[in-house]
Nucleic acid binder design. Structure first.
Lengths: 158, 158
DNA sequence: TAGTGTGTTCAGTCAAAATTGAACACGTTG
DNA sequence: CAACGTGTTCAATTTTGACTGAACACACTA
């Protein structure tokens, strides 16, 4: 490959990656744009400005705003300053992946709590339903613990 | 509580449970009706007919059809016969929860494969992006393994 | 102070997904 | 065979949520 070809290959690989993560995010129930923002920050590594995000991803500033806020709230990215530029910049936080798993664990635990609440409403005489609903809650608890274990493992590596 | 009160409490507890699981299913990106079907089968334990599902959940037969087909395809419920009744009956399969986790593991592994495919497209000269994308793929692999461990644990218990 | 750059908000638009209900295919029953 | 019961399919509808873009608030700058 000539140098020019390598540059082209890199650009299309980057674009493909960003789009692919957008689709994956969507399939996981997240907004597509949030996935693409995360992908761009991940790929580029260095801080990226608010304007660059809107520009490169071809989306409205409103969408960038809501996406970065969601990603910030999930502790996946952080807002940083660049001296001499009034724009906000963003970059992926350390242990972002561990935080993703942690967030999933939290959601699962919330579901477990909800189900346990239902369980308490079932009269003691209903032994069959009670046992089955309890199993269901236990399943969510097991999921939560498994996710926590994974999160911890990810946090330790690197 | 009188006996009548207990019966009432049981009925509303059942209805609440079914609705709650419907909402949880929805929040996990599954059709709400599928969640309610699963909940009803889970709560009742014994086989439930196609007609009872449509009737009790107040949904069209078309919805019941697509929901049970989805749940069957994910190995969460099975279609069984009841002698003397032409209707199809359904009940939760053994290890349904383990199968749920297994399905999640499969989805995650598919994502990992997708990302690894992207990784292969990035020129070797792009060491930074390559390292970060590889980390991302490794995260999905770790998730897959964690989920498999959880699935196995669930399968062993009971 | 007026003007410009920046991010947020929110009402409106749009697209995707869920849900319905009617047409249909197939088996059973009288 | 005709009538009915049963589950599936699919076009139409409804609902949900993402996304846009304009109005806005705020801070900086000339």
């Amino acid at each position: 490959m000539t140098k020019a070809e390598t540059v082209t290959a890199a650009t299309t690989a980057r674009a493909d990656f960003i789009e692919k993560i957008g689709v994956i995010a969507q399939s996981e129930g997240l907004p597509r744009i949030a996935g693409r923002v995360m992908a761009m920050l991940l790929y580029d590594g260095e801080r990226v400005s608010f304007g660059q995000l809107a520009d490169a991803l071809q989306v409205s500033r409103g969408s960038v705003s809501s996406s970065v806020r969601m990603l910030e709230s999930q502790q996946l990215i952080k807002r940083v300053a660049k001296p001499g530029d009034r724009q906000d910049y963003f970059q992926v936080v350390d242990h972002a992946f561990a935080n993703m798993v942690e967030a999933a664990a939290t959601r699962v635990r919330r579901a477990a709590t909800d189900i346990e609440e239902s369980l308490r409403e079932i009269p003691a005489s209903e032994t069959g339903p009670r046992a089955r609903v309890a199993d269901y809650a236990a399943y969510y608890r097991a999921m939560g613990e498994g996710l926590d274990t994974t999160a911890e493992a990810l946090r330790k590596s690197r």
